[in-house]
Amino acid sequence: MKKIINNPDDVINESLAGVAAAHADLVRVEYDPAIIVRVDAPVQGKVGIVSGGGSGHEPMHGGFVGMGMLDAACPGDVFTSPTPDQMEAATKAVDGGAGVLHIVKNYTGDVMNFEMAAELAQAEGTNVEAVVIDDDVAVQDSLYTAGRRGVGATVLAEKICGAAAERGDDLKTVADLCRKVNANSRSMGMALTSCTVPAAGEPTFQIGEDEMEIGIGIHGEPGRERMKVKSAKEIVGMMSEAIVSDLPFNSGDSVIAMVNGMGGTPLIELYLVYNELNEFLKEKGITIARNLVGNYITSLEMAGCSITLLKADDELLELWDAPVLTPALRWGE
């Protein structure tokens, strides 16, 4: 294992300390239990938005804490769900009297831990709603699986729900919007290399120099198929076809498109992917109304990318354009 760290056991805390030092104007960090909280939380009268998940996906979620997005994030160990005491502390810290929305990615661990946290917070009188994100088309959503995984749509949902909460929408409205974003989003990822969890010390999986994994998850979980590496055009074609045919997205649709890096792929390649995606969608009569290109939901140092499309209407675009000020996403005003 080759990483710029001091000690595998200290990675999370030392990285959190860096976040606290770099972004003291936007967030504060608490360590026991570990949470990243918007500096002016709780905002009175505003719905609080909490998300969280395993670490190793930075900037998600901690990098999205701030005005117009999350009120708090709960970082778990690398690739491991955070625990209910973190989520309960985060919920309490952001409860401005209008209730709290939990945005949960669909992984068994995350769902069960957030469920326990919601029970604890509700027992103490905080109104909590939870929305589970499950946008990954690589996994069949059937009775025989734990359902589709939550991936890129989480970033879009956090931005859009954050804007809705900021303008004063109530808990039910914000939660309904979150469900709407999830219902209209689909994603798919691919990997060229594996990643190494610091505490494990070895790559999560083996992959040949000339191979790629299509449909990879954000924790190095295998996807749909292992195959020889293909051209960017073919790769984007395979992923986009799976996404577009799943919802389905139709000619005339307008979308928010995210081309996301898994952590080890340079921007030069991500923009190349965006170009292919743009061509592919044009061909289908689908317009990209807004886009995001960069590393937003990563998998440590894995090389690879994912594509997320959200079918957008005027309401979603207005919320997308609303100002946001967080360590990793900021625009407007």
């Binding site: 625990t83 209910p84 661990g109």
Partner: peptide, 14 residues
């Protein structure tokens, strides 16, 4: 266990 394990096994064994 509930506080320290996380994952699926934390809430399950907890």
């Amino acid at each position: 266990l509930i506080k320290k394990v996380g994952g699926a096994s934390g809430p399950l064994y907890g």
